[in-house]
């Protein structure tokens, strides 16, 4: 129990000390995960909409596959990305291993199925509402997807935020493809793993609480911004 208290105290101490290294790590965590969320949303949201409005032969299978991908262990994703981007792998020439870019790619793969799946569910429900109207108005598939994505934007924001949550707390993949290099690829989660390895639970917990605070702050800020944008309550 006392370890927990030390963790909380440590978190405050860390934040208030304005330690440059800590802020660098926080910024890098945000940079990696926010970029990954943007890219994963750019793929996942239209994919979710597409799956909702299209009927095709392997639709059920595709959705089942997507749902299964949500449970994919990040370590496996990390390993696959590592093998692809290793100098002796097929994409080795880009020299991306152990860079933030590799971490972003791994996170996109981890987050995208989650975003697509939640988006698909939200859009499928809205599509059930809109179906008759949009068919009656002779919309093209493209117009349907755009309309549904726009009108479901609040639920889709939740999908993206869920992706952010999974990404910011993820450690297995980014450790492998990022290498946890100090000042280059070290992020909050890999720093926590490192300190835990050193048996420094107080510091590890402190960083853990910083991570939680960061995740909460991002969620609050995003919700604030999206509320002020329109008065509605969708």
């Amino acid at each position: 129990m006392s370890d927990l208290w030390f963790g909380v105290l440590n978190a405050f101490r860390l934040i208030l000390s304005f330690d440059a290294d800590l802020y660098e790590i926080i910024l890098r965590s945000l940079h990696v995960t926010v970029t990954a969320v943007i890219v994963a949303s750019a793929i996942g949201l239209p994919l979710g909409a597409w799956l909702a409005v299209n009927r095709f032969r392997f639709r059920r299978l595709t959705i089942a596959f997507l749902n299964a991908m949500m449970g994919l262990p990040p370590v496996v994703v990390g390993l696959i990305v590592y093998i692809l981007f290793s100098r002796s792998g097929p994409l080795g020439v880009f020299g991306l291993l152990f860079t933030p870019t590799a971490m972003i790619i791994a996170q996109v793969i981890i987050i995208m199925p989650l975003i697509a799946s939640i988006a698909h569910q939200a859009i499928r429900d809205l599509w059930a509402d809109y179906h008759d109207l949009l068919i009656s108005l002779n919309t093209t598939k493209r117009q349907r997807m755009i309309t549904l994505i726009w009108d479901a934007r609040r639920s889709l924001l939740t999908a993206s935020l869920a992706g952010f949550g999974r990404g910011i707390g993820e450690v297995g993949a980014i450790m492998i493809v990022g290498g946890n290099i100090d000042h280059v690829t070290r992020v909050l989660t890999s720093a926590i793993a490192l300190e835990t390895g050193k048996g420094d639970f107080a510091l590890a917990l402190g960083l853990g609480f910083v991570l939680i605070a960061l995740a909460i702050a991002v969620n609050i800020i995003i919700h604030r911004l999206s509320k002020t944008e329109r008065a509605g309550q969708w």
């Binding site: 809109y130 008759d132 109207l133 009656s136 002779n138 009108d151 479901a152 509605g232 969708w234």
Partner: peptide
Amino acid sequence: ARTRQTFVFQTPVMMRRS
């Protein structure tokens, strides 16, 4: 035919917009 028709449903569909 459908491009030149319109349909007012028994239960109107309210889009999530103004």
